[in-house]
Structure formats: C-alpha cells, structure tokens
Design a protein around this nucleic acid. Structure first.
Lengths: 190, 190, 190, 190
DNA sequence: AATGAATGAGTGTTCATTCAT
DNA sequence: GATGAATGAACACTCATTCAT
C-alpha cells in the first residue's frame, strides 16, 4: 500500500490557487487543476471530498498562514505601539510577498462561497490580535470602538492599496509606506 | 416598443446580479439567468454579445450608478469638509441600500474578470471626486498623499465594515456611524 | 424556433431499449444511447429530465403498448372463454413478436427501478382484463381466487416459456401452443 | 486461517447481494461493496478475477443454494405426489425466507448477464428434480409435456406471486397457500 | 493475504452558444 | 425581435482495476 503524499496535496492546492488567481473560480475546473498539478483528476478526490471541500480547505489554510504571519514576533509584554507596528507591517509584508495567496483569500472572501464555511474556523487564529486590541483600549491608547471598526481602519486601507498595486498606478517606497503606517496609527489611536 | 426592450434588458441584468450574489459566478449560467428573467436563453444574445460582455456591461453599469450616487449633491462651491461629508455618506448609504449591486461590484472587482475590461471606462465618472481631492490638498486641508492612499483611508474602511455587516456581528446606529465618519475625516486631513 | 420532433424521441427510446436488451442497464449509458440514436447526449435532456425519467417513461410506454395489445379484440359481450382465449393469445403473440420490448419490461420489472415509479400508473390499463376476471368469477367459470393468483397461473407460465425460448431449448408448434393454452385454461377454471 | 478467508469471501458476496437488491446492478460498485463488507477494494480482487466473475459466482452460488434447498427431503422412493409436494413447498419457502437471494437471482436471470455464463453450470444441480419429472410421466401421473412446460406451470406462478408480495397487495395464509399448491398440482397432472 | 493510493476512462449532466422558425 | 430545439465541449465526479508496500 502506498502512503499519502503531502507534496501531492500541496501541489494540488498550489495549482488551484494559481489557476483561480489567473482565471477566476469560474474557469478553474478540477481537470485543469489536475493537469497543472500533474495528477489525475481522480487523485484529487483521494485528498479532498469534492471541489467545495478543496476550496474551503485552501481558504482556511491561507487564512491560517496569513494570521500566523501577522502574529509573528508578537508578545504580550511588548508596548502596544511596538506590537501594533509589528502586526501592521507583518500584514503588509505578507500581502506583498504572498500575492497569489492573498489575492485568493480576497476573491474567496468576496464570493458567496465564504458564507458556506464555518466562519469561526477562519477567525479562530486572531486571538493574540484581539488581546492586543483590548489591552490597547484598557491603556487608553486605542480608540474605544468595536473591533470591526478598529480593523477597518488599521488593515482595510492596506487591502485597498494592494488592490491598486495590480493596476500599476501605485508604486511607493519605504518613506511612503512609513507615511501610510503613520496614518493608520493615527486613525486608530486617540 | 423601446420601453419593452429596456425592461427586458433590465430584467436580464437584475436576474444576473441576484443569481451571482446568491450563488457566485460559477453557478450562474445563461440559462438560469434566462429562466429567472422569464426570457429564452437565445434572447439574452439579442442584447449582449456573449456572457463576458453581459458581465462587463453589468459591472460598468453598477459602477456608474454607484459613482453618480456618490456625487449626488456635490458641487465645486461647497466647502471641502461639507463636500467630503456628502460624498462619504453617499457612498455609505449606497452600499447599505444597494446591497446586492454593491456585493456584485466587490465580487467582480476581486475577480480576474476585472482585469479584462477597460479600466478607464470604469473610472471615468470619478472626475468630480478627484477635483475635490485636489482642491482639498491645495487648500491645505487634505494630507499630501497620492489619491490611492486618500481613498484607501476614506472609503475602504467602509467596505470592510459592510463586509462584516453580513456576518451579523456589526450593527451600529447613527452615533457610531458619525464616529466612524469622524475617524475617516481625521485620517485624511492634516 | 424549431419544434420538437417525435421521431427523435422515438429513436431515443428505441436505442435505449435495444442497448439495454443486449448489454443490460449497467452498460447502457446516456452517451451510448445518444450515439445509437444519432443525437447529441445533450439532446436527450431536451426530451427527458434525466436518465431515470427516460427509463421510467420507456417502461410505462412499453407497459401501455403491451396492455393495449392484450385487450385487442376484447369486448364485454363475448363469452368468457372466448374472451380469455383472446387475451391469452394476444399476450403470447405480443411477447413473441415484440421480444425486445417484452424483455426490457421483464428486466425493468425485476430491477429495483420498478419500485421507484408510480405503480398505479403502470397498472391503470388493465381495467378490461380485471372486469373479465370478475365476470368469469360471477359466472362460476373462473376459480374464486385473488387476481394475483389468477394471473400467476394464466400468464406467468408464458413468461417462463419465453425465458426458455432464448436458450433455444424450446421450440414448439401450433399444437403444443394449443396444449399450453389448454393447461392454462384448466388451471384457472373450476 | 482458512476460516477467516471464507468469512471474508462470504461477507463480500453478502454485501454485493444486499446492495444489488436495494440499488440495482447499476449503482453497485466494487468500492461500495468493499465498504459494506469492511474490506479494501483491492481485497475483492484477491477472491474474484473481476466484477463479472464476482457476479457470476454469486449467481451460481445462489442457484446452488436454491436448488439444494428445493431437493431437501427428496428421495427416489417417495410417491410422486409426496415428492412433488416436498419440492414445491421447498421452493416456496426458500423464496419467502431468502428474499434477497431470490430477488438477486431473478434480477440476474432477467438481465443479459445470464447469457454470458455457462448455463450448464447453473442447471447441473436439478438432476433429482428431472428424474422425478420423468418418473411421474412414466407412471402416467404428470402430463406428457416438455420439462419447460412442466416447470412453467409448477414453479413460475410462485415467482409471479412473490413478485406481487413486494407490492403489498398479496398477503395470504396457510389455507390460500394450500389452494395455490393444489392448482399447480392440477395443472401439471392429467 | 491485504491494503489504501492512484488512475485513465467513463458516468450523468450542464454549459455557452447557434440554429431554424 | 424572440424563441425553444439542438449541440459539442466541458463539467464534477465515480468507475473497475492496478500498483506499491
């Protein structure tokens, strides 16, 4: 009996993400994914129950990778500002360095597919970030607003900027990036 | 006879938007659109060259409606702050009151389909907003940043909040909305 | 707009019956049926909702044809014996002359598919036969047994004989046929 | 170790018969059989050459079991009537008590699959029954007809009645059964 | 002997689009 | 202009079978 091959599983996910990014969900079929991953269509069903399961698992995996990338270097004893800075740049860097994964996540999150999955599963990993947010509020540093508002101003602008990167009309250097960070910080602090 | 045509065309677009919002691009076929619009599949090809053309035209139409909704009540003699307030609340209200159209727009904008259309076509209608932005900068009110950064902090947070509305964990009243607006205003002004 | 073609529908049914008779339900796919009927697989779905619907409709059609063949020449003023003789030979002749349809019916009737259809639909056409049976009982000619027992001895032996015809070890002439009929008549009469 | 093997083989046959009876040949795949028998698909190929071989072996096994059930208690010194009675009730009881096996046999016998197997293999075990038939004819008790006609009236009516049992419109007690037996006896005797 | 992984070929069905009226 | 019929190509998925252990 052969044993399952994690590289194969990985190749299938990679192929799916790439195809979805270049052609969209609509034009990404199981057989195209199979072809790109150099496996038989039937093999995909050894690793995933069906297409929806494949997409969900990829989404959750991407979310997990992104969230753990965001939390990297974060600890509860850092001053709030330092911690926020860490998270913010982690997020920005992840989005820039993992363009395809990030784009896949955004496309999935804006499609009705996202409503069919267990949302808690996807949000589970943000604990440390939420704690940071609460601590910042307790220390009177962050504005006293709901978490959704906080992250809308802290992180969504980055998504907007990344979206514009593709159009090519947004190229900015270190200085501008620092400027943007500063605006975000000002927006969420009192 | 002219009226009849436009009604039919409208019905087709409406059906397409609704189906895409509830089932995604993937599960929205020409024949399902036809069925929901009470026309024959062949009839759709009287109004649109093919499926891609249908989707593009819908997207451009939605963008146009949204942009003109945003500009409503805007004129070049208003003080900058009043004008910004107008645009911001116009945007928020449009997103809330036209949920399906807005969701369609977001879904399309995050899919690779958006890269295949003439982007200028979509952006053409934002002239007055750009002028407002330039005027605000000249008057030393808005921060001296690129347009992309400006709108990333002015409008993207709203998109983030709307996205969370669906999850149901974001319900806020007039007061909170005013609060959010104030944060946006603070973020984009010096 | 083209209109539906009853010949096409007929060709599809014919192709399905023939294939099922030579290869069984298992080896009879939609695409094989399509090929044999000189239509596209998709065309079959213009005339039938799905494969199950196709098979059910064929079965009901065959049953209907068989039952009306059986009733041919039957009227309520004939003496019971003459009427029974008519029906019995009608049945035998139908089975012999419409081998494929008959075989299809037997195969379907012995498969679990038959349990999924509306049985009443299939039995509806036997009214005159049932009336003959009741009349025969009233006149003290037929044995006083349930209908199921009556037809088990009147008609099932014929099915058994037909089944053996295929094996080739049953070839009999007019005389023997008359003999078999006589046994059936004796079995159901007092 | 020998015992284990036979249990596994038995489990595979059992699983196949059950699945075919509830879902038909068409919906009964090797992997479903494997799952139901708690073995690997590959294991089935240890015991059977391929799917056709599996089905044939099951059919022959069922025929063998049925025929030996029919012959039980039969010996060549019994009077013909007693012997016939024994065989007839054996047949009826087998059909009623082994519903699934019997239904499988009927389904297989009415499908083209039956034509692909060695028919002699299946008929080999009916020797004693044939002898009884010949003896009855010699003694002037049974009608002088071919074997096929004899069994068409002796046994096929039972098959017809069993077929109707499933529809639920045939429930009969000891008395009626005796009645049916009597009709069969009358039909085959002079 | 026994197994889960692996697969090319096939399944039933739907697709976007065109045809004929 | 409007339509239902028609279709080749594609879809997601399962098949019987073999492979590697």
């Amino acid at each position: 009996m052969r044993i399952r091959d994690d590289q194969k599983r990985e190749a299938i996910c990679r192929a799916a993400i790439d195809l979805i990014n270049s052609n969209g969900f609509e034009d990404t079929s199981i057989s195209k994914i199979a072809k790109r991953a150099y496996v038989s269509p039937a093999t995909i069903y050894v690793y995933f129950a069906n297409k929806e399961d494949l997409l969900n698992q990829i989404y959750l995996k991407v979310r997990l990778e992104m969230s753990s990338a965001m939390m990297e270097g974060l600890d509860e004893f850092q001053p709030v500002e330092e911690a926020f800075r860490t998270v913010w740049f982690n997020f920005y860097n992840y989005a820039v360095e993992n363009q395809t994964d990030f784009a896949f996540g955004e496309q999935f999150a804006n499609s009705p597919l996202v409503n069919r999955i267990d949302r808690d599963e996807g949000e589970r990993y943000y604990g440390p970030l939420i704690e940071l947010f609460e601590r910042g509020k307790r220390e009177g540093i962050f504005k006293d607003v709901p978490l959704a508002v906080f992250s809308a101003f802290a992180f969504f602008p980055v998504i907007g900027l990344i979206r514009n990167r593709h159009s090519g009309n947004l190229v900015f250097g270190k200085e501008m990036l620092e400027r943007v960070y500063q605006i975000a910080w000002d927006a969420v602090t009192d």
